[in-house]
Simulated scan of single mutants.
Amino acid sequence: MHLICPKQPEHELQSSSVSLFSFRVDHLYTFFVQWSPESIYSKHTSKQDFLKVHPETLNVIDTLLNNSAPKNWKIVTVKQQKRRPSVCSSADSESEDLQPVLVDRSQILKEQHLEQLMNHIPARTQGYPWKLAYSTAEHGTSLRTLYRQMAEIDRPVLMVIKDSDNQVFGAFSSDPFKVSSYCYGTGETFLYSFSPEFQIFRWSGENSYFVRGFLDSLQMGGGGGPFGLWLDADLYRGSSYSCDTFCNRPLSLHHDFTIRDLEIWTFI
């Protein structure tokens, strides 16, 4: 990765400006080296693999690096800074495993589920509290109600299902669920299962049949055959088969399953 300063017109670039920008680049270079020492950085520009930095960002970094008491701050990752103990954890627990904050109580998710899922959701959703957007226990068993609950959401969602065999599985969708005449979503979308051990099934690249919502069903994954995950209008019955989109195995113990509880979480 190469670091470059914001480019200015030549007639404005005086010798003092050159010195200032050189000084700022040195500071920015130091900042990234401290942040990720295992990476290789260069202060020399190239035609590719460079990072453009806004002047305001340089000012912030200058302030940090010129701090007379540098021990008062440190560079941390999003995971280190924002992850907090789960509300599922005991207040007296001193476990080193940090979990996301659940704003609402879950009927399905346990500590082991959160530990695994937290490590696989996209970075842009990590560090945020999880809010329950829909649950069959609270809102009833209706796909139409599920869609209504998603209407005001503009961020990714996590679906969690517990079936009649007490198996837990579901999907992460880059987009909230909705009725659509076409498939939607991105390669961030994935299926997962804890049945019987945790497995995650990411986008295979074969097609883009991530999600499609109908009034009478919700479909995830496909490609010339059954769906990776399919739910009926009453959110009572579902099915899971191997599909080209995710190259997954069936998420439940049986291809066809009965839903006991279903929850959809979003990240706020």
Rank of each mutant, 00 (worst) to 15 (best):
V211F: 12
L13R: 02
Q107C: 15
K7C: 04
T245H: 04
T30D: 00
M150Q: 12
A123P: 02
D49L: 13
D256H: 13
L158G: 05
A123W: 10
G213K: 03
D154I: 15
Q116T: 05
A151N: 12
E38I: 03
P70F: 09
S240R: 09
R24C: 08
G224T: 15
W230F: 07
I40E: 06
Y236V: 10
P196W: 12
R83M: 15
W230M: 07
P85H: 04
N66T: 10
S181Y: 03
Q48N: 11
L158A: 07
L20K: 01
Q167R: 15
V168K: 03
Y134M: 02
L13G: 00
D244I: 08
P122I: 08
S217L: 09
F21S: 00
V53C: 00
E263Y: 10
S106L: 07
F32L: 01
N119F: 14
S240A: 10
F198S: 02
I264F: 05
S135P: 05
E111P: 00
G238I: 08
W265K: 11
M159Q: 13
F50T: 03
I200F: 03
V33S: 07
D244A: 14
L191Y: 06
G185A: 01
S106R: 05
V211G: 10
P37Q: 10
S106G: 06
P6T: 00
F227E: 15
S39H: 13
E197K: 12
S19Y: 00
R260A: 11
S180H: 15
F267V: 08
Q112L: 08
Q107V: 13
G238T: 08
T45R: 01
C183Q: 06
L215A: 09
T186V: 02
H254V: 05
R260F: 08
L28C: 01
P6A: 00
G170L: 04
W130T: 12
M118T: 04
N67C: 08
E152Y: 15
P37Y: 03
I40K: 08
K47R: 07
V179D: 10
K43W: 03
Q149C: 15
L64G: 02
F31R: 05
D154Y: 07
Q48M: 11
D256R: 10
Y241R: 10
D154R: 07
F198L: 06
S89E: 12
S217D: 11
H44D: 06
F190Q: 02
S173D: 04
L3Y: 04
G238E: 04
K82H: 12
H2K: 07
T145I: 11
Q80N: 11
D216T: 15
L58I: 02
N66S: 07
K71R: 13
D175Q: 14
T245L: 01
H120P: 06
Q149D: 11
R84Q: 08
S195G: 14
F169C: 03
G224K: 14
K178M: 14
P156W: 04
I200P: 09
A171D: 10
R84W: 08
K110P: 01
R124S: 14
Y209S: 13
T145N: 05
S90P: 06
D154G: 14
S240N: 04
Y192L: 06
L98Y: 03
M159H: 13
V76A: 05
P85S: 09
R212Q: 11
Y29P: 00
R260C: 03
L58G: 01
I153D: 12
N67T: 08
S242T: 06
A171T: 14
Q112T: 05
